[in-house]
């Protein structure tokens, strides 16, 4: 080859090699390695197969949960929460909630999840809201009562959507659960795994779901996670065209109601409204707003029957 073309030729080769290495995962490297060892007569083809499979399994467990896995966790979390909280079977109200929620979710940094965002009212006086992984969001009647208009309900939903976007629910799963499953996988070769092992793995799944449910209903997210969800929610509201000040007015009203109710539900799992307002005030300067008349009217029309129960 002419020397003139040698440098560019080598450059392209090097770049392509770098690109290939960057694209390749650990699993492929393992396959190449076992292939070489097998060809050299160091291990048998069956052993090579086992090593490759184990490497793949370990690699998978170290990855983040996929969008699909997150979906199945979220579904089980909602099914578990609904063992304690009764759904509010009101199609008109749930439709309005979904119209508002889904029109906000499209402005999230994670607008698409495996199964999409879906919202449901809960028949409970407790002031509470839950965001399950994957985008299933539950809001109680008690929480709805803290909202005087659509903009404030949008603030509640935006906060929950941001918990989904920031994957706070999944972070509640104890790291040990992942390694537990790995131990089962490492103990037996893939060929011997049958219904018994799958039962153990199902149990592991239930425990992971229980971690998330406990965090949502009892222990709560960390103060930092709540602050991050509030900051992201303010940004989401801004993008969607709602006044961020609605977060402040909603939190103030919630604070009053929580004092009246003796601090159950949301108060148990969230930092105080006043500390959340203080954090938000660093970015939200305007704390008052005049609700848009049309939005006010449609909120009242959709929700008045529920609000009138009090």
């Amino acid at each position: 080859m002419n020397k003139k073309y040698l440098l560019p030729f080598i450059s392209v080769l090097v770049m392509l090699l770098i690109t290939t290495v960057l694209i390749s995962g650990c699993g492929e490297v393992a396959e190449i390695g076992t292939g070489i060892a097998q060809a050299g007569g160091i291990i048998t083809s069956s052993q090579a197969d086992s090593i490759t499979k184990s490497t793949k399994a370990i690699e998978k467990s170290q990855q983040e949960l996929t969008s699909e896995q997150e979906y199945y966790v979220g579904r089980a979390v909602v099914a578990s929460v609904l063992q304690t909280y009764k759904p509010l079977d009101r199609p008109q109200q749930n439709n309005y909630l979904n119209l508002l929620g889904q029109s906000l979710a499209i402005f999230s940094n994670c607008p698409e999840t495996f199964g999409g965002y879906h919202f449901l009212l809960l028949d409970s006086d407790e002031i509470n809201a839950f965001a399950a992984p994957g985008g299933l969001i539950l809001v109680t009647r008690g929480m709805l009562r803290c909202c005087n208009n659509e903009d404030e309900l949008a603030a509640v939903l935006a906060h929950e959507i941001c918990h989904v976007e920031l994957k706070h629910g999944l972070k509640a799963i104890k790291q040990g659960r992942m390694t537990e499953a790995l131990t089962i996988l490492a103990a037996e070769s893939a060929k011997q795994l049958g219904s018994e092992e799958l039962a153990s793995l199902t149990e592991n799944f239930e425990e992971s779901v229980s971690d998330v449910v406990m965090t949502l209903t009892t222990s709560g997210y960390s103060r930092d996670q709540e602050r991050d969800a509030d900051a992201a929610a303010a940004q989401l509201l801004r993008r969607a065209g709602y006044p961020e000040a609605a977060m402040i007015t909603m939190l103030r009203r919630m604070d009053e109601r929580i004092s009246d109710s003796g601090g159950h539900g949301f108060a148990k799992t969230h930092p105080s409204a006043s500390s959340r307002i203080d954090s938000l005030r660093t970015t939200i300067t305007n704390t008052q707003f005049v609700p848009d008349a049309v939005r006010q009217e449609r909120f009242t029309a959709a929700m008045q029957t529920i609000l009138a129960w009090y």
Binding site: K56, A57, K60, S61, L65, E68, Q69, E70, Y72, V73, R75, A76, V78, A79, S80, L82, Q83, P87, L120, L136, M178, A181, L182, I184, L185, A190, L193, E197, L198, A199, L201, T202, N204, F205, E206, S208, V209
Partner: peptide, 29 residues
């Protein structure tokens, strides 16, 4: 691959098992 996925939780097979066992009710989900 399915075993590895189940190990992390989380697939339809595991959900069906929970439904069949009566552990969780997915009607409202």
């Amino acid at each position: 691959d399915e075993v590895a996925l189940a190990g992390k939780g989380f697939n339809e097979q595991v959900e069906n098992k929970l439904k069949a066992d009566g552990t969780l009710d997915y009607t409202w989900v």
